[in-house]
Amino acid sequence: MSAVLPAIEVGDLTKEFDGLRAVDRVSLAVAAGERRVLIGPNGAGKTTLFHCITGTLRPSAGRVALFGQDVTRLPEHRRTALGMGRTFQISNVFAELSLLENLVLAILGTDRRKWAPHAPVGAFEAVCRRAREGLGAVGLAHRAEQAARLLSYGERRQLELALALNSNPRVLFLDEPCAGLSPSERQRISRMIGALPRAITVVMIEHDMDVALGLADRVTVLHRGRVILEGTPAEVQANPEVRDVYFGHV
């Protein structure tokens, strides 16, 4: 157990905006294969922490390691190449491109063929086949040729997830994948996340306590930029402090 490197290790990570600390000396370690859920009230710094871990933002201080490798100074695309994948809280898909093209880009991102200038995308048959499979996995195969802007809100969330899944991640960061979805769509997405192979470590921000507690191995509670508790779902639910800052406000 102790010999296995954690998938993600964050040490004393701090992010300040104009002197305001959005993330305040956060440390956490997520074991390989674990499902970790981050919860906390709005403004707790969850998304900012995500941005710092995946490289969208530069932390003001602290370290981030991926399977023991220090990635604190690496740009975002290099972290993706090393195995980080993420979704965005607000769907960030390529609206003007077709769904198939969306998926092709996700696959090519960690593939050297992304530089190929000499042949049309369609000539890369293996890539296109994988892209169709990826769409099929989220139930969007029948709309492959349509532009992503024509998707409904819920379908966009599914595409968002498909993009992250197809970027070849070893650690997947999901920023509120179920936000704004109907109960049936929620179930669908959380089933998909639950069905992911354990080879992929999942770190997820989630407000829906049913979804969160159903999926999580462990839960980390953030409040005002700090970790106030970490434990199993049962421990977290039983904790009076958490009830105060979190459940009390729902």
Partner: peptide, 23 residues
Amino acid sequence: ASPFGLALRGIKASETRMRSLGF
């Protein structure tokens, strides 16, 4: 029409997403 060209359109559509996909 190549992967290179598609990547350019991807960047035009959303650079943040492209970076997170590894470009």
